[in-house]
Design a protein around this nucleic acid. Structure first.
Length: 424
RNA sequence: GUGGGCGUAGUGUAGUGGUUAACACGUCAGGUUGUGGCCCUGAAGAUCGUGGGUUCAAUUCCCAUCGCUCACCCCA
């Protein structure tokens, strides 16, 4: 065929929409229950926003951005992640003058040029939340609780929660030195990739799944053991609050995972991740962390922030895998079946008044036998068929026949209010 | 960017070195006179991903290419 969706993109067909509205609806409801306001940032931004915000050394900036010059010569980039744009908006609109912190959520597509595979596409959709302007570990816990509330409201089961602290500007450099020394000592055991690159980003080694790197990272110094006093206190308070939430039944138990790191430069202190228990492939369905340095990097005054992003494609994959049923899309109320041209013309206007009365109505295709129209009505899933022949037109009445269940058909006048009232 | 698997009607599959490529579901139409679902009958619908090669002959064998898919990298 001549045209198809570009690699890594998908049409979301009507039969799949029930999942999407279920997920978006749940996200909006949960976000509202935590007092978050929705923000929509543009689908594209100045490329420099991401170069500065996400970090030049990251994979996203180095090789995954959809960047191009527009006709005016500006270099723009399709949004690869949501946090930097939200922080840009926070600065641009002077939100530091609002009561702090500011709670924002979004749900929109993101674009990354990657090789597609299970749970990974080039245009993916995220539900994301941010709390900006509050350094307290209380809001870290609030964000994590919100993430869990969202996932559990969807009905997902068998999830695990991992948290970690990766320190801050005060303690991370010292820790990285320790880690580097350790990696250098066991350099020969590292996988080929990391033997070359561990000096550039030693944290990545901890995340590596190759046996060699795993064996080295098991005994590697853990960041949580080398936090500065402030970071340690922050982490302890966070764990304490999470423990309270677990005790109150508002959160699943968590584990501290020393090897949990984040790929974006702006993260500090708290990082966390929810994933299905049976891990395989691209499994993380919700992940986030604190990004206290970001607003200042983007030119605002120093302002702490924390948030998460959750991939809707992956969430839906898990909903399907777990056999979770979602509410069906709205069904059709009525199909108008005609016998004769005059009847059909009359049904067109009758359908219009019925729609105005709030019913969903379609008129069966012209030029088909009645049997064919009834078959069509049946396949359409409509609740009722309204049958009108030219000879009924003279009597001024039609037949309203239920298509679901075993109700009896009734004669009705050609009056939208009467017909609507008959459709229970 | 690297590696594995796969490419036959709308969908899911079968099949063979040789006349009109099969089946199921779906679609459409019929099963007489104004009524769906079950059933029966029929029809439409495939340049067998694309290009090249081997061969008297290829959808079937070989190569390339593109696409899909899974995994690595990385990430939601």
């Amino acid at each position: 065929m001549a045209f198809k969706t570009p690699r890594g993109t998908n049409d979301i067909l009507p039969e799949d929409q029930a999942y999407w509205s279920y997920v978006w609806g749940t996200a909006e409801q949960v976000a509202a229950s935590f007092g978050f306001g929705r923000i929509d940032t543009p689908m594209f931004e100045d490329t420099s926003l991401f170069r500065h915000g996400v970090g030049e050394e990251t994979d996203i900036v180095e090789k995954e951005m959809y960047s191009f010059d527009d006709l005016g010569g500006d270099n723009i980039t399709l949004k690869p992640e949501g946090t930097a744009p939200v922080c840009r908006a926070y600065i641009q609109h002077g939100m530091s003058n609002l009561p702090q912190p500011v709670r924002l959520f979004y749900e929109n597509p993101h674009f990354r040029y990657e090789r597609p595979q299970a749970g990974r596409v080039r245009q993916h959709h995220q539900f994301g939340v941010e709390i900006i302007g509050d350094p307290s570990p209380q809001v870290d816990a609030e964000i994590i609780e919100l993430g869990w509330t969202y996932l559990s409201s969807l009905g997902l089961k068998n999830l695990s929660l991992k948290i970690n602290s990766i320190g801050d500007g005060a303690c991370r450099p010292t820790y990285l030195e320790l880690l580097n020394a350790h990696l250098e000592h066991y350099e020969d055991s590292l996988c080929d990739d990391h033997r070359k690159r561990y000096k550039v980003n030693p944290l990545r080694v901890l995340d590596c799944k190759k046996p060699g790197c795993q064996s080295v990272s098991v005994n590697a110094p853990a960041s949580v053991d080398h936090l500065c006093d402030d970071c340690r206190e922050h982490f302890e308070l966070l764990k304490g609050t999470l423990d309270d939430l677990v005790a109150a039944g508002a959160l699943i138990p968590y584990t501290v995972d020393n090897r949990l790191v984040r790929g974006l430069d702006y993260y500090n202190r708290t990082v966390f991740e929810f994933e299905p228990a049976d891990v395989k492939g691209q499994s993380t369905i919700l992940a986030g962390g604190r990004y206290d340095p970001l607003i200042e990097i983007l030119g605002g005054k120093p302002t702490p922030g924390i948030g998460f992003g959750s991939g809707v494609e992956r969430v839906i994959l898990n909903l399907k895998a777990q056999g979770i049923e979602v509410p069906e899309a709205r069904t059709l109320d009525l199909i108008c079946v005609h016998i004769g041209d005059n009847a059909r013309r009359r049904l067109v206007t009758l359908a219009a008044t019925l729609r105005a009365a709030g019913k969903s109505v379609i008129v069966a295709p012209e030029g088909r036998s009645m049997k064919s129209q009834m078959r069509y009505a049946n396949n359409s899933g409509a609740r009722y068929a309204l049958i009108l022949g030219d000879r009924d037109l003279e009597q001024g009445e039609a037949t309203l026949r239920p298509l679901i269940g075993d109700g009896k058909e009734v004669q009705v006048g050609l009056d939208a209010a009467v017909i609507a009232a008959e459709m229970v």
